[in-house]
Amino acid sequence: MNRLPLIFFGVFLTFAFSWLGLVVYPYFELGRLQPAPDEDTGGYFPPTTTGLATAGQKVFSANGCLYCHSQQVRFAPLSTDIAKGLGLRQTVARDYLRAQPAFLGTMRTGPDLSNIGVRQPDPNWHHRHLYEPRSVTDWSIMPSFRFLYQMREIQGQPSDDAVSGLIGPHASPPGFEVVPSDDAKALVAYLVSLQRNYPLPESPLPPVK
């Protein structure tokens, strides 16, 4: 092995092999997936999301939620994800068509979020949770995201979008209210939109018992 061409082409070819398999193939095959038509309503799965929820992905990304929260439900019997209620069915490639980026995640320091919008559809719950996680779940180790909220004095009527039901040391004192920033609203819209409970041809919902 004393010659540059031999080493050069060797390392080139071995690497090109995996590049074709794990990059070029998904680029063409997975990248071409289309939403599945929903025969009942004429809509599509996965459903389109609102602009606010799409913007929420940026906030999710900026604050690194994925370092603790995965978004993938693995199939049984490889895993017990479905038995543990992370979702009704395995998540498949088509579920992530509209994700930008696809927050698959590699850690579950916190619960999986594939279906958080099914488990917690109430935006106010999410605001309370993000503002002060331990006021909702006392053993939570999630950091507070109070920096996405503003505490301010109530001027006349309380704001419509003020977070209600806050308790704990950071709750608003009388005469004050906590209002979410645009980022907080977008993030919560995104979290509530995470509902992978629609059927797909390659991953149907289990029969209702």
Partner: peptide
Amino acid sequence: QPIQGSAQGAVNWW
């Protein structure tokens, strides 16, 4: 030029 969907996961971990 992000590619679509879960293909990102494959490229990411590759």
